[in-house]
Structure formats: C-alpha cells, structure tokens
C-alpha cells in the first residue's frame, strides 16, 4: 500500500472509532474500547522499538508503569491535577526509557530481552516490597508506591464533573482516541521516514550496521526516548482512567499479552499493532466464559499464531499468500461450478 492509501485507511478507521459512542452507550463496551486504545497505544510504541529499531526490549510495560506510577504518586501524595501529572509521567518515562536505551545500547538480541525483562521484574519486586510507611492517615499505613495493593482514589480527569456521571466515560473515550491518534501518527512518521528505512536497512544488513554504527546509536536512543514518552502518557492515562494503579500492571502475563499482540499482528509493520491487539482482545473476549481455561486458550492461540503466521497477520496478508489461497479457492469453486453444471446431464 502506498502512504496515501495507508493514510486514507487510517482516517477512515478514525471516523469509525469516533462514531462508536453514537452506536452504543454501554459502559462495558466503551470501557473495553478504552482498554483497547491503551494496549494498542503501548504496542504501537513498542513496535517502533522492537520491530522498527530492532531492539529486543521487553521493558515497554515497565516504562508504561513508570508513567502510570509517576502520575498516580503525584496525584496521590501531592494532590496534583491528573492532567498535569500525566505530562510529568510522560517525562519520567522518557528519562527511564533513555537510561535503559543507553544501558542496552551495546547489547545484542537475547541479552537485551533478558536484561530488560529482569529490570521490569525488579521494579515490580521493589514496589511489592515497599512497606515503609510515609504517614498514618486514619490509622492506615500510607507508603510511597502503595506496595502490593497499589494506589487508588487519587483523582481522575474531571470528566465526571464536566459531563456528569453517565457521560464521563465518553470524555475518557475521546481522550484515549486522541492519544492513540497522535501516537500512531508519530509511529507512521517514523516508519515511513528516512529513519525508518535506515533502520530496516540496518536490521537486514549487519555489515552495513557496523559501518554506520554511530548513526544507529543516536537513532536508537532517540526512538527509545520518544516511544517512551507516548508509553508514559498512556500509563498516566491508564492510572487516571481506572483511578488506580498497582504492581500487577507489571505482571508477566500482561507483558506477554502485549508482546504476543505485537508479534501476532506483524512486527515492524504499521498495521501490525492494530491487527494484533484487535485479534488478541477479541479472542480474549471470546474465551471470557471459560474462567481458568481462558489463559490456556490464550497461550495455545499464541503458539499456534506464531507457528502459522511467523510474519504476523499483516505480514501474511502482504505476502501474497492470501492471494494464492484466494486464487486456489476461485479455481476450486470454478471446478465445482463446472462439475455441478455437468452433473445433471450425466
């Protein structure tokens, strides 16, 4: 697809998404869409780091959590307005992201994956172990990060006062839509910029990568930082939307869900995160009634998807494989047609 077609498709989708609240006012459905926006937004940024820049970082949820925790803690302890703390959260995420970017700069593939995974686990372990009371308010111990139970009731974006209780979700819906629109536009620019092409060239040709080592380092950290900013904003948005945040945000299972979404959608491709997140969330929704078997189904889906679509759904659609199957089907249907037409005469 040309850039123009991509943009047209994206705008079309945007209009459809913007019209969804006109079709349903179900708080559950809109809530699921907001969650979809959040995950899709994170995966879009992660895809830039992982798929486009080719850094096997598993720290994206940790960066998201830094944004979320920074805004939640400021709102909770200092009573700052959520709108402000989200921005600060984004900045905190940039700092974290940049530091991690530099720390993993000289490392390759699996080393980056293992190290970033361990960093995320360490952050979660530290939060859970945080039991030093800052103050006792009404007899309960208030800790800096909220410890294992997390922080809650620190405020939201004020849509409730502005739009009323019933329509508050609409405000958050459109705020989420705005965030993913800006984030996706950024991703689109990166993927289609000379930078994106350079990254692809570097990824596909390591000799070239060595020859242009200096460039790579600069761009790698740059993409890491900017992707961190949007992830941090989304983390803050998450905290504000749920009016709560806890260490479970750093659970292995959440990370895996998003990682799988990215891979299943198609790593390094603009439409990958959308296709992947939509597929995973739909599948998850389908398994809702299965209770404890739900995770089993999700795991099996992950394995099967990676084996069947090693290039992801988008890669599969682009590869012409579909066209081949399509033409086979047409051929088959022509044969059947032929056969059926002949049959009565016999």
């Amino acid at each position: 697809m040309s850039a123009r077609q991509n943009i047209a498709l994206a705008l079309g989708l945007l209009v459809v998404l913007a019209a969804i609240p006109l079709l349903t006012s179900s708080r559950y459905v809109l809530g699921q869409f907001i969650l979809f926006f959040i995950w899709f937004g994170v995966v879009t940024q992660w895809n830039l780091v992982f798929g486009v820049a080719g850094i096997f970082s598993l720290a994206q949820m940790m960066i998201f959590a830094v944004g979320g925790y920074a805004s939640a803690m400021l709102a909770f302890h200092l009573q700052w307005a959520m709108w402000l703390t989200v921005i600060v959260g984004g900045c905190a995420a940039v700092v974290t992201s940049t530091v991690i970017g530099f720390a993993t700069l000289r490392l390759r593939g699996a080393y980056v994956a293992l190290l970033t995974l361990a960093i995320a686990a360490a952050m979660q372990a530290l939060i859970i172990a945080d039991t030093d009371c800052l103050s006792f308010e009404t007899g309960t111990c208030i800790t800096l990060t909220g410890g294992a139970s997390g922080l809650s009731r620190f405020g939201d974006f004020g849509f409730r006062e502005l739009l009323g209780y019933r329509s508050a979700v609409l405000g958050e819906y459109y705020l989420g839509l705005l965030l993913i629109t800006v984030g996706s536009a950024f991703a689109f620019l990166i993927i289609n910029s000379p930078l994106g092409h350079a990254f692809r060239a570097l990824r596909d040709n390591s000799a070239c990568a060595a020859a242009r080592g200096i460039d790579r380092i600069k761009y790698q950290v740059m993409v890491f930082s900017l992707a961190g900013f949007f992830s941090g904003l989304l983390g803050g948005f998450y905290a504000g939307h749920f009016n709560a945040i806890g260490p479970s945000i750093l659970d292995f299972s959440t990370l895996l869900f998003l990682l799988t979404s990215m891979i299943v959608g198609g790593v390094g491709r603009f439409w990958g995160p959308l296709a992947g997140c939509a597929a995973m969330m739909l599948f998850d929704e389908l398994l809702m009634g299965l209770e404890e078997w739900r995770a089993v189904g999700l795991g099996v889906f992950t394995v099967v998807a990676v084996i069947l679509f090693p290039q992801g759904i988008v890669g599969f659609l682009e590869s012409g494989e579909l066209r081949r199957i399509g033409s086979q089907l047409t051929g088959l249907s022509a044969q059947i047609h032929h056969f059926v037409k002949k049959a009565p005469g016999q």
Binding site: A113, S253, L256, L259, T260, I263, E292, W293, A295, V296, L298, G299, V300, F301, T302, V303, V306, I307, P310
Partner: peptide, 15 residues
Amino acid sequence: NIIIATVGVAIVVKS
C-alpha cells in the same frame, strides 16, 4: 518467534 511461542507455552503450563 521462539520467545513468543515459549511464552505461550509458559502461560498454558502455569494455568
């Protein structure tokens, strides 16, 4: 992809 596939297996086994 082997990272993802083994992650999928890990989810299944744990559940």
